[in-house]
Amino acid sequence: MTAVTPARAAVPGRAATPARTAAGGPPQRGSRASRTVVRVLVAAALVWTLVPLGWMLLSSFKPTASVTASTPDLWFAPTLQNYRGLFSGANNLWPYLQNSVLAAGLSALLATALGALAGYGLARTRMRGKQHLSFWVVSTRMAPIAAVVLPIFLIFRFLGLIDTLPGLVLAYLSFNLPFAIWLLSAFFSELPPSLEESAQVAGCGHWQAFRHVVLPLTRPGLVTTFVLCLVFSWNDYAFALVLGGPHTQTLPIAASQLVTQTGIDWGQLTAIGTLVVVPMMLVGLAVRRWLVTGLTMGAVTGE
């Protein structure tokens, strides 16, 4: 249990300053000049990062003519017409939103669950060729989608999975599962086996030791894995296009549908972009401190 305490403390900026310095904050001395340089660089990075997103957000509230004005239009009467357009008439974004949430959420959940099991097994197994097995796992994520999509489509059609949510979930698993197994097995292999061993000495079964001792310790890793998997599947376009259908359209598909033969409605497109981005940002920000801890953990305990 104690092994993980430093990791918890290592959450950057977790109110208590002493904890931060103790667990590896940078040397706090440093010339004023260098601190100014750091601040300027961070500010520059912020500008570079936020201008496109801010512009997208701003444009989504502009009236049509203002969106494509040839000099940037900063004074405009804000309107919700772009958002309203996405939820009325022939467009109704609700089902898209629902499909996105369900498919991405379920797939991330399943990937994390199966990834935890397999990652643990992979971390602890002593089988020969373990390295090859774990590399194979990683390599399944590298297949270029345009090449494998035809066979996957035919297999899914054969199994009746086209245009179904389980189909999309399964398709997303094909790229999330290897990622989850790989990431989580790194976490598990950093935990000393003595943890489970002592639990087993205390009378726990193997499964109970995993469930009640190992899993709680990897919570940051599990959260990190879940969030990254969620982001990858939420943002997927290629699989959703091919394997989805009238009943399983997702948000990225809706975005591409606004590219029409007679023009792109940039107002609506920026609105949809905002809608696609905001939920993921909220999720990401909600668990940000877990993200850093999750990614840190292996290294800390391995010290």
Binding site: V149, F153, R157, I162, D163, V242, G245, P246, T260
Partner: peptide, 24 residues
């Protein structure tokens, strides 16, 4: 049910639909 797509996506879906031997 109307599925609207941009042209290259449409061509892709139609081709795959034919490849499956039975049309959606």
């Amino acid at each position: 049910n109307i599925v609207t797509l941009e042209l290259s996506a449409l061509a892709q879906k139609v081709a795959l639909d034919f490849a499956s031997g039975n049309g959606e």
